[in-house]
Amino acid sequence: MSQPRPAESRSDAELIRTNRGFYESLWSQAKLIGPERFNTWPLLRELAAAAPRRLEVAPGLRPRLPLDGTCFVDLSRAALRRLHASGAHAVHGMIGALPCADASFELICALDILEHVADDDSALAELARVATPGASVLLSVPLHPAAWTAFDDFVGHCRRYEPAQIIARMAQHGFVIEQSAVYGMQPKSSRLLDLGQWYLTHKRERAMWWYNRVFMPLGLHFQKPLRWRDGLGDTRDVDELLLRCRFRPGAMPSR
Rank of each mutant, 00 (worst) to 15 (best):
V57G: 10
M252P: 01
A171P: 03
Q3M: 01
P6K: 12
A150C: 04
L193M: 14
P187M: 04
Y199G: 06
V91D: 00
G134W: 05
F38V: 03
S2E: 08
T18Q: 15
P99F: 06
D239F: 07
L220G: 00
A118P: 07
L15G: 10
L127M: 12
E162K: 14
E14K: 08
R10K: 15
A251D: 12
E24I: 03
Q29N: 11
R82Q: 14
D119V: 05
G69H: 09
L75S: 15
L98M: 08
E240Y: 08
C245H: 02
S76L: 06
R20E: 10
C158P: 04
H116K: 15
H92R: 13
H89M: 07
A50N: 13
R54E: 01
R5W: 00
L47M: 14
R37E: 08
T18C: 12
S2L: 06
L80R: 15
G219W: 01
L55N: 07
R45W: 03
V117L: 08
M216E: 13
H221G: 02
L65Y: 07
E8R: 15
Q29C: 07
V176F: 04
L195C: 07
L226V: 03
A147V: 00
S104F: 10
G96D: 15
R81I: 02
Y161A: 13
I113R: 05
A147T: 01
A118H: 15
G87M: 11
E240N: 15
L218K: 05
V117N: 09
D152Q: 13
A50D: 10
K203D: 02
L195Y: 05
A103D: 11
W209S: 09
